[in-house]
């Protein structure tokens, strides 16, 4: 066990941004903190990085009981990394490297290596105020790795990138997770599914679901029916929800998804209701729910 968080809580003016969060992270694990904007992801990561003091709860990082500063084990990438624009990328990396107890020479070697790795070595000696958003994001990743931390905390590492940059950074993250323990936040399930071993879904500061990716995928593989009508009325959704065999209903712009307990019963009751109410059904499909449905459900609550 490398990171143990117990009942982590943060109040901002009596509003609970993070509410009794508890989870563990094992050495070498890669876990995604998944949630909508404002769910408390950034606040959680900032507390783990030591930038915010928790109102309540504990954070234990392996090795922190000794004299050594925990921060030397942590690499942190903020959501929108900001640098001293008057420095060059190289200067900034050497600067933060030396702050993390590297010698001038070590910091320099490491900086060259990292600039290469994140793909901005051409801009190494350019002032950062001339960097594009994507280059800053890459420099942000480089600075978080400068002191070879054992725990990497990344706040939305790919959300501000264009599709190509996003692909490159995702590939980089896949490599990084082999080297360190990685906890990153995202609001995009696909990114989480692509690189992480585990998920922690949070909403309004509370954990809604957590577990390994496999276990969660299995758990949320329920039978479902997707419906699409020409027109949908408020009453209609309530009526569908009340039908036999239907557990819950989720209405989105793309149509209506019904979680079902018994597919055969539900199919019959939905089709019967459609005929008797004269609903303008466009299509009807049966299938299995995915994590996406679960996540959408969490977001819509």
């Amino acid at each position: 066990m490398q990171l143990q968080v117990k009942k982590l809580t943060k109040d901002f003016n009596n509003i609970k941004a993070v509410d009794e969060l508890s989870f563990e992270l094992n050495q070498g694990e890669c876990v995604a903190l998944l949630g909508a904007n404002g769910a408390g992801k950034t606040t959680t990561l900032r507390m783990l990085a030591g930038l915010l003091k928790p109102t309540d709860g504990t954070i234990e990082i392996e090795g922190s009981n000794g004299k050594k500063d925990v921060r030397s084990e942590i690499g942190y990438l903020p959501q929108h990394p900001v640098f001293h624009g008057w420095m060059t990328g190289m200067e900034f990396l050497v600067f933060v490297g030396k702050l993390a107890h590297l010698s001038q020479k070590e910091a320099k070697t490491r900086a060259i290596e990292l600039l290469e790795r994140v793909g901005i070595s051409d801009a190494a000696n350019m002032r950062i105020h001339k960097y594009s958003g994507g280059m800053k994001q890459r420099l942000g990743i480089a600075q978080s790795l400068i002191h070879q931390p054992r725990l990497l905390l990344m706040d939305e590492p790919v959300s501000s990138l264009d599709p190509i940059g996003r692909r490159e950074v995702l590939t980089l993250l896949k490599e990084l997770k082999k080297e360190t323990t990685l906890l990153f936040s995202t609001h995009i399930l696909n990114d989480a599914e692509e690189i992480s071993d585990g998920l922690i879904v949070i909403d309004h500061g509370k954990i809604k679901e957590k577990g390994s990716l496999e276990a969660l995928q299995k758990k949320y593989q329920n039978q479902k029916i997707d419906l699409h009508f020409e027109t949908v009325e408020e009453k209609q959704i309530e009526e569908i929800e009340a039908l036999e065999g239907i557990e819950s209903v989720l209405a989105t712009a793309d149509g209506i998804t019904c979680m079902v307990s018994d597919l055969d019963v539900a199919r019959e009751s939905v089709l019967n209701a459609t005929l008797s109410h004269n609903w303008s059904l466009n299509y009807f499909t049966t299938g299995k729910t995915t994590l996406e449905d679960m996540f959408m459900e969490v977001l819509n609550q």
């Binding site: 500063d69 925990v70 030397s72 942190y76 903020p78 929108h80 640098f83 001293h84 702050l99």
Partner: peptide, 13 residues
């Protein structure tokens, strides 16, 4: 205000 201090204060200083 800009957030650059985050990158500095997260280092063991």
């Amino acid at each position: 205000q800009s957030g650059v201090s985050d990158l500095i204060l997260v280092k063991p200083i």
